[in-house]
């Protein structure tokens, strides 16, 4: 609206003051650009922000799907329920434990495999493809494979292996639910970390490494002082993207542990409140609180921890 008025008036009259060649065309360009962007912007606002606003409204309602007659304004009672039942804090701790451990483990394994794959050897391509496979398997399918073929207490490969070396079977789901989920998520996401770190390793200049070895640095010192600083940005990106993906992991919990023994993460808790509890109002309140906490944690992490996103700072340490 404002752009159209400012452009039509100054066109001929004030040509002496403003550089005429730049102003009208660039303004016109800007107008066209805005015109092109607006529909997309409008749609993305409609698709992302309106549902969130609706969620906020719903979070103040008493609304159970099976009690359509009893829908009413609930005030803050849904939010009070979020904090008084204790589920939320437990879920937050479970999410941090499971995601945090999986990210660290996947990063370490990913780094190890990336260093190995960075060398030249026979069948490198095949090995790389095989290493990536776990990441390509759908999470639900992966969870089923782990449940039935790997961890089954009678016929699972891991337990058969344990028995073969004289150890007793382990009831993973019953006795070690958190470890089970971390194991599966590490297995699934290690290739993702490996790929990003491998890209980082391959972008490292070979001359620098050669110079280091000429100067008498051994492989460990080269890694510590040359490779690791170079990889820092890649590690940050991998942690950020991997962490976001792992935060949303739902399938292994729904298929294997059903939220027992400290595996009820936020995504599973939200699912349970909405689709088992059928309590739309309370589920919305859980959702809103989760979004607020996620935004808070993410912006804090992006500002302080990740150098990639800190503007104006010198990148190479």
């Amino acid at each position: 609206m404002t752009t159209t008025t400012t452009i039509t008036t100054p066109d001929g009259s004030e040509s002496g003051v403003l550089p005429p060649a730049i102003a009208p065309t660039s303004k016109r360009k800007a107008r066209v650009a805005r015109g092109l962007v607006f529909p997309a912007l409008f749609i993305s606002i409609a698709l992302t922000q309106i549902p969130f606003l609706v969620t906020i409204v719903v979070s103040f309602l008493n609304w159970n799907q099976l009690r359509p007659d009893a829908t009413s304004f609930a005030g803050l009672s849904n939010y009070i329920a979020v904090f008084t039942t204790g589920d939320f804090l437990e879920a937050l701790i479970a999410t941090v434990t499971i995601t945090g451990s999986s990210v660290i483990l996947a990063l370490l394994f990913g780094l190890g495999f990336a260093l190995l794959l960075d060398r030249k050897f026979m069948g490198q391509g095949i090995v790389r493809t095989l290493m990536i496979t776990p990441f390509l398997v759908m999470p639900a399918a992966a969870a089923l494979i782990w449940k039935y073929s790997m961890l089954d207490v009678n016929v699972g490969m891991i337990n058969v292996g344990l028995n073969a070396i004289g150890l007793p079977s382990v009831s993973f789901n019953t006795d070690l639910p958190v470890v089970t989920i971390i194991m599966l998520m590490t297995w699934q996401f290690t290739p993702f970390f490996m790929l990003i770190l491998l890209a980082g390793l391959q972008s490292q200049s070979k001359e620098v490494l050669e110079a280091a070895s000429v100067d008498g640095a051994g492989p460990i010192r080269t890694f510590q002082f040359m490779t690791l600083p170079h990889l820092r940005q890649y590690i940050e990106i991998a942690i950020l993207l991997g962490g976001i993906m792992m935060l949303q992991m739902f399938d292994p919990i729904a298929i294997m542990t059903k939220g027992t023994g400290g595996t009820k993460t936020l995504p599973y808790l939200l699912y349970e409140r909405a689709f088992i509890g059928l309590d739309i109002g309370q589920a919305a309140a859980f959702g809103v609180i989760t979004v607020v906490i996620t935004i808070g944690a993410a912006s804090l992490a992006l500002r302080s921890l990740f150098k990639v996103f800190v503007e104006g700072e010198v990148r190479d340490a």
């Binding site: 059903k258 027992t260 009820k264 088992i276």
Partner: peptide, 16 residues
């Protein structure tokens, strides 16, 4: 309507 939720949550506790 609340039973599936109650049943699920108590079942998780019993599983523990």
């Amino acid at each position: 309507p609340e039973f599936q939720d109650v049943g699920n949550q108590v079942a998780q506790l019993v599983a523990d």
